[in-house]
């Protein structure tokens, strides 16, 4: 049995008076790909943002590598070894590709940065071609690659990806999923949030189904792919 890397227990998150996450629990073991699927507004992104420290939970615990992260500010969580590649990419549009990558390595000593940049360039040759360009001039797919590369720059043990395929052409979606598999093969544990449930379940070791802030179903990726209620709700019948 692999070691538990991230364990979220009984998490409750509010936006003002709106109860967005209603007591969810899930865990990610070392070396797994785990996915959270669900409709818009089910609380998938909220869950990731809370784990990354951008939102504060009202109650519950988030234990990463045996350390409770609740109350630690977001900028200190990266150093613990997790990175979030946020929804909508959120690359720094006015910074160059290279500067974006440098920001990803903000918490790491300067001498290690150049090697990591080369590593990201190997993974995403397109970024190398465009390293001087400001990120605002990149295409959507390239921006997604940059966002993923930027998250990798912190050398995370756990990489959280929020809707990496959103708004991309089908061929690019395939490419992004190949990259996720590739990252996983290189030893990065992955927590993936996706609207493209079929693709996400196909690569996931385990999956959780969220519905209006609650986990309503869970199991291995294969199990859920053939689960009738999941098929009906998320895989188009």
């Amino acid at each position: 049995m692999a070691k538990t890397l991230l364990k979220v227990e009984d998490l409750n998150v509010y936006y003002g008076s709106i109860h967005a996450i209603k007591g969810i629990s899930f865990e990610v073991n070392e070396g797994e790909i785990v996915t959270l699927i669900g409709a818009n507004g089910a609380g998938k992104s909220t869950s990731l943002n809370t784990v990354a420290g951008l939102l504060k939970p009202k109650t519950g615990s988030i234990v990463f590598k045996d350390k409770n992260l609740v109350g630690i500010p977001a900028h200190k969580i990266v150093k613990q070894g997790m990175a979030l590649c946020p929804e909508g990419r959120r690359v720094f549009l006015q910074l160059s590709v290279k500067e974006n990558l440098e920001m990803g390595a903000y918490t790491r000593p300067g001498r290690e940065v150049a090697d990591s940049i080369e590593m990201v360039y190997d993974l995403f040759p397109r970024l190398k071609e465009r390293y001087k360009q400001v990120a605002g001039t990149l295409s959507g797919g390239e921006q997604q690659m940059l966002a993923m590369g930027r998250a990798l720059m912190s050398k995370p043990e756990l990489m959280m990806l929020d809707e990496p395929s959103m708004g991309l052409a089908p061929i690019l979606v395939d490419q992004i999923f190949d990259i996720i598999k590739n990252l996983h093969a290189h030893g990065t544990t992955i927590l993936l949030v996706e609207q493209n449930a079929r693709k996400a379940l196909a690569i996931a070791d385990r999956a959780y189904v969220l519905e209006t802030g609650k986990i309503v179903n869970s199991g291995s990726g294969k199990e859920l792919l053939s689960d009738d209620s999941v098929k009906k709700a998320y895989l188009g019948g």
Partner: peptide, 10 residues
């Protein structure tokens, strides 16, 4: 540009 994304960078 983006305070939230900047925090995610550390």
């Amino acid at each position: 540009e983006d305070k939230g994304a900047a925090q995610l960078m550390g």
